[in-house]
Each structure stands twice: as structure tokens, then as C-alpha cells.
Amino acid sequence: MESLSGRKKVLEQKPMNFWERIYLPAIFRGMGITFMHMFKKKETTFYPEQEREFSENWRGMHSLKRDENGKERCTACGLCALSCPAEAITMISAEREKGEEHLYREEKYAAVYEINMLRCIFCGLCEEACPKEAIYLDGPIVPADYLRKDFIYGKDKLVEMPISELEALKGATV
């Protein structure tokens, strides 16, 4: 049949000549190639000691952000849960009481915010849906665990550390 694109290449299968048929020259050439590889640079990254850098558009574990005053940004609008194709996010909203203004930025906040890491496909749609810039997938790899229930991450694991604690931690380590 005529090739429509005109780029069709007909593969020509010639019968093997004598040197090809006795295999040996090809085998020796191959062995030469593999032998040269013994002296090449090793590509191994020694993982626990040495970590490879993530790429810029890497999407890892979620974190719920705080604003510059250390207040939680999330307002429990539920857009992330709605946008989630894997139905991994659930939340229960609550109203901000008097005296809690330093904790939550808006009048409504997420009392419970859970992501099921087994369901999550790390597509980043929650990040895009969030109107408050409260959720980002900027964390590391989600660690392995033994039980299914341990993969449901609550606010204790998701919310960013308050700035004061972070600084205290830094002070302790320095």
C-alpha cells in the first residue's frame, strides 16, 4: 500500500553473512562494550545518606499553609474536596469563636481536615482549586506505613508548623 505520509521505511532483511552467522565477532564486540562500562562513572545515589533533588514541579505531601501572622489560611470552603478526582479529601468546618482570631484567618475554619494518602493521586487539582492559597503539595514523599488507618492524614500532620515553633526548633538545633 502507498504510504500516505511518505515517510514509511521498508525494512530490508538481508541474509546474514558469514561473520554475522558465527555470532562470535558480534559477541566479542558486545563484551568489549560492557567491559568499558566497568570503568565509567557510577550512577548510583546512596539514598538514605544522599538524596536526589526534587524537580521544580514536584508534587509531594500536602501542607496546609499559614499566613504571615501564623494564622491558618484554610476556610473550609470545600472546593479542594470538590475538585479532588480521587475523593481523598474530607473536612468538617466550624465557626471561629471569640478569642481565636490569632489562630484562624477567616470566620470559618476546618475543624477536621483529612486526606487519605492511599486515595490521593497527587494531581495537584486541590492546589489549583484553593481560593485562599491554603494547600500546596510541596512536601516530601509520603512515607510508607503498615496500617491503612495510618495513611489518613489529619491536621496534625498536614498543617504547617507555626512560625514561632519553627524558630524555636531552629534555635534548638543551631
Binding site: T34, H37, M38, K42, E43
Partner: peptide
């Protein structure tokens, strides 16, 4: 065997 395999494949 494992070492040789690794070295021939640029591993350690």
C-alpha cells in the same frame, strides 16, 4: 556476580 553485574551496568 552481583558486583560484576553492577559494574557492567554503571552501578556499585
Amino acid at each position: 556476580e552481583r558486583k560484576v553485574a553492577a559494574f557492567l551496568q554503571d552501578r556499585v
